[in-house]
């Protein structure tokens, strides 16, 4: 029995890890008031980057660290543009998403041909219990640390303040840009590591379009957990189960004479991503508690400011 449970945990862990870390990153970014619509572009680019780097450095951890750092810097750019200039967060996010999609294909496709032609074997992480459980533990620890950061420290208070009311926070003496840069950098580092682990721990190889849409699933997880680091654990488990066991469900249903196609199985997490946030908004208590930061996605430029 314990063995079976352990098997289930090990089977789900890689999925949980990449979903949870990206949603955690999204929560950090959005807590600071930046509507994170570049997430899917950053995610897809992260997957392509780690693949490209892996071919060069042949060390998964090094590739993961560099990717996380680079994606983190992309976050800094987004924080700068949305905070210092009177620009719509949606417009910036979407534009960067498209650049991210394009660059991902641009970088990784030639590399994937090279890998195939030269029969390079990619040094990804092994999916053995020791490795998987290490990442699982790490991601939960990071989640708890993020929780403490947001709710127990002055930096956390500052992040929440700039998300709720940046003008007020600024009047209180907070440098809104500085705080948003810190929050977005940390958030995007998490998104970068999540996208790296998606490849290193799960797909183990790259193909055109890999990662597209998973940023949005993480976005939806973050949204339906009210951007709360600890609640996110539960929501991520739900989505991980859905991704891991939808095929099992498919088999089970066939036993009852119901057949759902593989395409529906692929679509399930996306359908869930649209509709699970509804559950949250439909329950009044949750709706109030999980309410987004008041200034999320609004232009912080009611007045003038200096660059």
């Amino acid at each position: 029995m314990i063995g079976e449970i352990l098997n289930v945990i090990i089977a789900m862990s890689p999925i949980f890890v990449f979903l949870y870390l990206a949603s955690l990153g999204n929560s950090l970014v959005e807590k600071s008031g930046i509507l994170n619509l570049a997430i899917d572009g950053a995610y897809t680019l992260g997957v392509a980057l780690v693949f490209t780097l892996l071919v060069f450095v042949n060390d998964p951890t090094l590739a993961l660290l560099i990717t996380s750092l680079l994606i983190g810097l992309l976050g800094v750019l987004i924080a700068f543009l949305t905070t210092k200039l009177p620009i719509s967060h949606g417009a910036v996010g979407l534009s960067i998403q498209f650049v991210g999609y394009g660059l991902a294909s641009f970088l990784a496709y030639p590399m994937s041909l090279k890998v195939r032609a030269e029969r390079i074997s990619l040094n990804t992480y092994l999916t053995i219990p020791e490795v998987v459980l290490t990442f699982l533990t790490l991601s939960v620890v990071i989640g708890v640390l993020t929780y403490l950061l947001i709710y127990r420290t002055k930096l956390g208070a500052a992040i929440r303040a700039v998300g709720e009311n940046p003008a007020g926070a600024s009047a209180l003496g907070i440098n809104v840009l500085k705080i948003r840069i810190v929050a977005t950098f940390l958030g995007y580092v998490l998104i970068g590591s999540a996208s790296s682990l998606y490849l290193l721990l799960y797909t183990k190889n790259w193909q055109e379009g890999l990662g597209m849409g998973y940023g949005w699933i993480s976005f939806a997880i973050s949204l339906s957990s009210g951007r709360h680091p600890l609640v996110g654990i539960a929501t991520s488990i739900i989505f991980a189960t859905l991704i891991r066991y939808a095929y099992v469900l498919q088999d089970v249903l066939v036993g009852y004479g119901i057949s759902i196609s593989t395409f529906i199985v692929i679509a399930l997490p996306f359908i869930a991503a649209v509709f699970i946030p509804l559950v949250v908004t439909a329950i009044p208590q949750l709706r109030r508690r999980f309410a987004p930061p008041k200034h999320l996605g609004k232009i912080f430029f009611s007045e003038e400011r200096s660059v």
Partner: peptide, 12 residues
């Protein structure tokens, strides 16, 4: 900031 405590507000 309404959703923060007095201490959190002043800490800023």
């Amino acid at each position: 900031i309404d959703s923060l405590t007095v201490a959190e507000n002043l800490s800023l």
